Amino acid sequence: MWIANVPPDSFNGGSRTDDSVSVAHRVKKMIEDGADWIDIGAYSSRPGALEVTAEEEIRRLRVGMEALRKVDSDIFVSVDTFRAEVARIAVTELGADMINDISGGSLDPGMFAVVAETGVPYVLMHMRGTPSSMQTMTDYADVTADVVADLRVKLSRLRAMGVADVVIDPGFGFAKTLEQNYTLMRELDMFGLLDCPLLVGVSRKSMIYRLTGKTPEESLCGTVALNALALERGAAFLRVHDVAAAYDTRAVVAATMNNFKQAIIQS
């Protein structure tokens, strides 16, 4: 799952694609590198990011979606937004295939209804608070058990509304301390209790560069290491900035886990 950022202030400069020419160029390159899925977002969720109106978010998404569909009209695309109306427009007008909501429905009470109405798959991520307040909300009795329990409640609500296709995201970096992030990674197999495919997004995040004393741009090696661990612990999808590195990581992990023939086919 390649991260296509169209906001100008996203935390990883190398992933920013805020005009149609840049979007088209990057999409073409990432598909060549092996991307199966593009996640397009127009509102940076990093702490301290600038506020963006719904109108501006939609405008940016329209530019990005039109450009990427000219490159590949069939590739699977999710829209990264926590706003219900933005999600609705992205699916019904712009052609998005999935909704990826960092807030798990907590920032817009209308989101679950939009997911149910549109019938598209949904990424249910764990977060507390807002991007600006989330790092003050890291008090857990047991971080893994608490995150699983919170997601279980929301998953039950979605199921009751008829939503069948849900992907779970533990929300690495969102309302988690550095130590809590690594606890979640160590105990990642616990999310199998939810009986949903698992998405892991750790690409170039602070849990890597704060630990190593580097920058996001210098955090590819740490990203590869965590992605390998995530796949070994049951992750079905990787959300990444660097598709070629993730593609190779998947092949190596698959071959190591006694799926050598399938790894060769995928490569």
Rank of each mutant, 00 (worst) to 15 (best):
K176Y: 02
M161Y: 07
T183M: 03
A251D: 10
G104P: 00
P47H: 02
L178N: 02
A67Y: 04
V86C: 03
D139E: 15
P197G: 09
G119K: 13
D195T: 10
D9W: 07
I208K: 02
A96N: 00
R59K: 15
A87C: 05
N12P: 06
A49I: 07
I99Y: 01
T118F: 09
M98S: 00
V115C: 08
V243C: 11
Y43V: 15
G14D: 07
M1V: 05
C196G: 09
N181G: 03
H241R: 01
W37H: 14
A255V: 03
V123P: 01
T53S: 15
R69F: 10
N258C: 13
V143M: 03
I264Y: 12
V77F: 10
A235C: 12
I38V: 14
E51A: 14
E93Y: 11
L199D: 03
C221L: 13
T256L: 15
L61D: 05
A35W: 08
I208A: 03
I40S: 08
V148K: 09
V114K: 01
V153T: 14
L61K: 01
L238P: 02
R26T: 05
E93C: 08
M257C: 13
A244D: 13
N5D: 00
E85N: 14
V23K: 00
L194C: 10
S267I: 14
